[in-house]
Simulated scan of single mutants.
Amino acid sequence: MYFKIVPMRDRGIARSWEEIGRDRPIRGDVNIRHEMCKIMNRDSNIARIRPVMPLDPELLPPLIDAFLSGMATNAFTLSGIEEVDGRLYAQSWYCRPE
């Protein structure tokens, strides 16, 4: 299922709702799988955004240890950890249906 996704943090620092609302959402298919995570050296729930065109690159770094942290009538939030430049940061995705 395709969603409009907006990252809620920048290198672990929370963004304001005004900034999140102004940001252009990423359109993609949210996919969550339980798989081996090389970074953590263990199994993890990993969320990925699959691009609209199959050969396009990933649009955001995957969320490691992904979990549903909030849900309302027309949106939900996935939270977890992302790797950016070899470092791990907290991250959440604000997801709305198209």
Results as ranks from 00 to 15, higher is better:
K4G: 07
V6D: 01
V6I: 14
P7R: 02
P7E: 04
R9L: 12
D10K: 14
R11Q: 12
R11S: 09
I13H: 12
A14R: 13
R15E: 09
R15P: 05
S16H: 04
W17S: 07
E18L: 09
E18I: 12
I20R: 03
I20P: 00
R22M: 12
R24D: 08
R24F: 13
I26L: 07
I26A: 02
D29Q: 15
V30M: 04
I32Y: 06
R33F: 10
H34E: 15
E35R: 13
E35V: 14
M36P: 09
M40A: 12
M40S: 13
S44C: 09
I46K: 05
R48G: 05
I49C: 01
P51D: 04
P51I: 07
L55K: 15
L55W: 15
D56E: 14
P57N: 06
P57K: 00
E58A: 15
L60M: 08
P61S: 06
P61K: 04
P61I: 10
P62R: 07
L63W: 01
D65E: 14
A66L: 04
A66P: 00
F67P: 03
F67I: 09
S69N: 07
S69T: 05
G70D: 08
M71W: 04
T73L: 11
T73W: 09
F76D: 01
F76G: 02
T77A: 01
L78A: 00
S79G: 07
G80F: 01
I81Q: 01
E82V: 06
V84S: 12
V84W: 08
D85T: 10
D85V: 11
G86V: 08
L88F: 02
Y89F: 11
Y89R: 03
A90M: 10
A90T: 14
A90K: 12
Q91N: 05
Q91M: 06
Q91V: 03
W93G: 02
W93M: 00
Y94V: 01
Y94S: 01
C95Q: 01
C95N: 03
C95P: 02
R96P: 02
